[in-house]
Design a binder for these strands. Sequence first.
DNA 1: ATGCGGACCTGTTAGC
DNA 2: TGCTAACAGGTCCGCA
Length: 271
Amino acid sequence: MPELPEVETTRGGIAPYVEGEVVTEVVLRRRKLRYPVPQALLVDLPGQAVDKVERRGKYLLLRTEAGAVMIHLGMSGSLRLVDADTPAEKHDHIDIVFENGQALRLRDPRRFGAMLWLKGDPMQHKLLISLGPEPLSDAFDAEYLFQRSRKRKQAVKLFVMDSHTVVGVGNIYASEALFRAGIQPQLAAGKLTRQRCVALVEAIKTVLSAAIQQGGTTLRDFVDGSGKPGYFKQELQVYGRVGESCQQCGATIKQLRQGQRASYYCPGCQR
DNA sequence: ATGCGGACCTGTTAGC
DNA sequence: TGCTAACAGGTCCGCA
């Protein structure tokens, strides 16, 4: 469900309410998520104050003096702030309860998400250490993408969705960015020219920034920290629009499958 | 190193 | 209306 804009929307939504708050208790209703929730989280987190809520790629980090809580929302996860006594529903797996009576509640029907407890520098963790640059940082530029893509036969859409290339570009925004850059998704990454790398980097930055502005994209069930949906869906040009006509050129939007995922593109605008 | 398919889950929807 | 199959925002792992 969440790509970078949805995770960033969640981060921004919960940070003001969670930073500075002291954890009193962790309520675990279901241990089996993507990875088993470590016992150490239940033991070590209570008593800690959350210093900062950060994001790296699609991972959220709640930093405390003793360690960091690392959260991934997978395909269907959401984090919401609720009163601690709000009854938990079926897929509400974990509550981080605070002294002020609020709780940060993780809901995740498909359970592809994760909550881990990291000691030491979280950026050195296996899951974070080899991630590519943040798409909205200066490190992600056309020259980087150009060099990185040399000799790659992989389709450009799969290439930009690879978190080792750049983090945070998921299935929706990969299609959207390629449309905006005028690049067809099947093109081998190694065939990108410098010029097209400029356009693609620009498109990725623009589409992600715009989506963050709109509070993310809600296809069916994404909600932010207070339960509100995102409004970027109405800005989508190709994603989910097979058979509709392109707003740019009028051609019919097409769909194909790449890496077991749907890709959407306009055969008129994308070459 | 690269590239691909399978695996992990449940819920919703499309199609017969 | 009901059943079944396909599909859904992610990404790690193992194999060729």
